[in-house]
Simulated assay, not measured.
Amino acid sequence: MLFAFSVAPTGGAGFEDGSVHSAVAEAVRIVEASGLDHETNSMFTTIEGDWDECMDVIKRATEAVMAVAPRVSLVVKADIRPGHDSGEIQGKVDRLNKALGK
């Protein structure tokens, strides 16, 4: 399974320039420590694993942001595809590139 999620502080978190990178870094530390395959880009962090382990990481990452903000926004999207247990973070991109003739 792949889970793409975005977690960020909202509601007066006290970031003068509007940037939330410091709080998001705490969430990404949780992801990195999890040992799950992952990828972070400017909008989402994608993790790969089974339902329970991914949801646990998302919960702990959200709690890390909650520790520094009075309100938190969480967006989660999942690709649930039985029989595809690993390598899909890159596998999906490889198949797309092949379809594009790259």
Rank of each mutant, 00 (worst) to 15 (best):
G87S: 09
S19R: 15
V57C: 05
G18T: 04
M66T: 09
E32P: 03
P82D: 03
G49A: 02
V20R: 05
G12I: 04
V7T: 03
L96A: 08
I30M: 02
E39H: 08
T62P: 01
F15N: 05
L96E: 01
G91Q: 06
V7I: 08
T46K: 00
F3S: 11
S42H: 03
D56R: 15
E39R: 14
F44P: 07
I80D: 10
E26M: 14
E88R: 14
P82Y: 13
A99Q: 14
A23P: 07
H38M: 08
E63A: 12
S73A: 15
G18Q: 13
T62S: 12
K102M: 10
P70I: 12
M55I: 05
T40I: 08
A99G: 14
G18V: 04
A78N: 12
G18M: 08
P9K: 10
T40M: 02
E48N: 07
A4H: 10
K77M: 13
L36S: 00
A33K: 13
E48V: 12
E39G: 05
E32A: 11
R60F: 01
H21M: 09
G87I: 15
D37V: 09
P82M: 05
A69R: 02
F3E: 11
H84L: 14
P9W: 12
E88N: 14
N41P: 01
L96K: 11
D94G: 00
S34Q: 04
G101P: 07
L74K: 00
T46C: 06
D79Y: 11
V57F: 00
K92C: 06
E48L: 09
V7W: 00
G101M: 10
R29E: 15
H84E: 11
H21R: 06
T62N: 03
V7A: 00
G91K: 12
G91S: 04
G101H: 13
G12H: 00
E88C: 09
S42I: 08
F5K: 02
R81F: 04
D79V: 13
F15M: 05
D50C: 10
L36K: 01
V65C: 02
I47F: 14
A99P: 09
L100W: 10
I58M: 06
E53N: 04
H38A: 07
Q90N: 07
V31C: 11
V7N: 05
L2D: 09
I47G: 10
S86R: 12
F5E: 01
S6I: 01
R81W: 11
A23S: 07
S19V: 12
A69G: 10
C54S: 15
V76R: 05
M1I: 06
E32D: 10
R60P: 00
V93G: 00
S86M: 06
M1L: 08
D56V: 03
V24M: 08
V72G: 02
V57T: 01
P82K: 07
K92I: 14
A23T: 06
V20M: 15
G12Y: 01
G14W: 11
L96P: 03
D94I: 13
M66K: 14
M55C: 02
V20E: 04
V93L: 15
S42E: 12
F44S: 07
A4I: 09
